[in-house]
Structures are given as C-alpha cells and as structure tokens.
Amino acid sequence: MENNIEYDKMLSTINLSGFIDSVFPYILIIINMILIFMFINYVKSEKENAQMQILNEKLKMQYKYYLDMEENQKKMRQVYHDMNNHIKNIKSMKNNGAEINEYIDGIEKEVQENRCVYNTGNKLLDIILFEKNKECLKNEIEFNTLIDFRECDFIEMIDISSIFSNLIDNAIEACVKMDEDEKRYITLRTTSIKGYFVIRCENSKSKNICSDRDSKGGFITSKKDKFYHGIGIESIKSSINKYSGDIRIKEEEEKFVVNIYLPINK
C-alpha cells in the first residue's frame, strides 16, 4: 500500500514537472511581452512629458515676447510723440556740438533698443533673435539679420533653438572678448541654394585670439570650462545630423564664418 502511495506521489511529481516544462516557455513569453509593453508605455510617457515641457517653455517664451513687444511699442510711441520736443531741444543746442551729439546718441540708442521686431516665418526663431539682439545691444555688438525660415517647417522646435541659440551665443562670446576699440558685429543670413537651406553666421573676433584645432578638427576654446563649451558645438552638430546636414567653420584673422547646410525636405 505504501509503495502505491509513493508511486502515485512520484507520478504526480513527474506529471507536474512535465506540465511546468511545457508551460514555462509560454509564461516567459507572456512576462516578456508584459515587460516590453510596460517599457514602450514608459518611453511613450517620457516622450509626451518632454514634448509637453518644450511646449510649456515655448508658451512662456511667447508670452514674454509679446509683453516685451507691447512695452517696446509704448516706448516707440512715446519717442514719436516727443519728436517735436526733441527737434526743438536740438535746435536750442546748436552752439554746443558735444551736447547735440550726446542728445542724438541717446535718442538713437532708445530707438535701436525698441525697433527690432522679427518676422522670419517662425515664432520661436523670432523670439530667439529678439532676445539675442538685446544681449548684443548690452555688449555694443551690431546685430544684423536677414532670415526667411518659411521653407523649414520640417525642422523641429528643439533643433531650431539648439542651432540658432548656440550659434549666436558663440558669436557673442567671441565679440565680447574683443577690445573696446575694435568693431563688434554679428551677421546672420539664410538662403536656399540647390535644395539646401543655408545658414551663414559671420562674427568679428579679436586679432589677438587664435583658436587651435583639436585632433577631430574642432576648435579648442579659451574657456576654462572646455567641456561646457563643447556641449554647445556638439548640440548644433547633433541637431544638424538629424536632417543629414553639414557644418563648415572657417576662421580668419578678424572673423569667424560658420555655414550650415540643411537639405530642404519637400
């Protein structure tokens, strides 16, 4: 009797083991599918959160931009309203050239600070240019732009910010290092040539600063924090690579010239 019981237990164990062996692969497949599903949902959720964060930042920037525009328009209306008074004041100073020049320079500066309203065809780019122009005015840098971005609606918002913000920031940095008696300028232009959208940024630099190239052909910065500076350049390259684009950097004695080529996606 005991032998029969032991035999039944052994038979049950064998059957259970066989059942587990036959079912276990399917259990693994189900678990893997659940894990993959959870991972996909996590990636999707993170992507949506990132997109929402970018959208919120864009809305904040646009709101600030419109507030600045409203304030600038008020200032400009005030300048035009006071124009007759300005003319009278200048005439009254006709015997004092130094005072006239100082007075006119003050009016010119006020007009320059409030005249820049950009219309590139992309709102985010308009905001970036407006903010960078204010930086240039503070650092006495002449900021010239001629940009038509209407053909580039395929470029993502984050890449527009990466390319133009870093490009202009590097140009401002080079200009700020110049001596006060040297002319500081940044010229940013775009054009379409043979299926490519070309972004050209030219900026002045000090004759005394000569950038060396590293082993990869990039420029070695004079910044103490070389890694941080490199992130800006690499960020531009990363965005350009997404669109199979190219970047060319040329250094001359008194200027840097950066050309970016992006295939136009029809």
Rank of each mutant, 00 (worst) to 15 (best):
A171N: 05
L167W: 09
D169Q: 10
L167D: 01
I172W: 08
A171Q: 03
Y185C: 01
F164L: 05
C175F: 10
D159T: 01
C175N: 08
E180G: 04
E182R: 02
E180R: 09
D159E: 06
I160W: 10
E156T: 04
L167H: 04
E151K: 15
D159M: 03
F164N: 01
I163Y: 09
N166C: 00
D159I: 06
I160A: 05
S165Q: 12
R150K: 15
I158V: 11
A174Q: 14
D181S: 10
A174G: 12
K183Y: 10
E182T: 04
S162E: 10
E173I: 12
I160D: 08
D153K: 13
E173H: 14
S165E: 12
V176S: 12
N166V: 01
E151T: 15
E180Q: 11
E151Q: 13
R184W: 05
S162M: 00
I168K: 02
F164G: 04
E173N: 14
D153T: 05
N170P: 02
Y185A: 00
S162C: 01
E173P: 03
D159P: 02
I155F: 11
I168G: 02
I163R: 09
V176F: 13
D153S: 10
R150W: 12
E180M: 10
Y185E: 00
I168V: 05
D169C: 07
M178S: 08
D159C: 02
N166A: 01
R150Y: 11
M157E: 15
E151S: 15
A174V: 11
M157N: 15
I168R: 01
K183V: 00
S162D: 09
D179Y: 14
D179H: 12
D179T: 08
C152W: 12
E156I: 04
I186T: 03
A171H: 05
E173R: 13
E180I: 02
V176K: 15
V176W: 14
I186Y: 10
R150G: 09
K183R: 13
E151L: 13
N170Y: 06
I160M: 07
I160N: 06
I155Q: 05
Y185L: 04
C175P: 06
E182K: 06
M178G: 06
Y185V: 06
R150L: 11
D179S: 14
M178Y: 08
A171T: 03
N166H: 08
D179I: 07
I186C: 02
S162K: 10
D153A: 08
F164I: 03
I155Y: 11
K177S: 02
D179L: 13
D159F: 06
D169N: 12
E173V: 11
Y185T: 01
N166W: 09
K177E: 02
E156C: 08
A174M: 13
R184M: 06
I163P: 07
R184Q: 05
I155T: 07
Y185N: 00
K183Q: 12
K183S: 05
M178D: 08
I160G: 00
I155D: 03
L167R: 07
Y185I: 00
C152V: 03
S165C: 09
I160C: 04
C152F: 09
A174R: 15
E151Y: 12
E180H: 10
D179F: 12
R150E: 15
T187G: 05
D153N: 13
E173Y: 12
D159N: 00
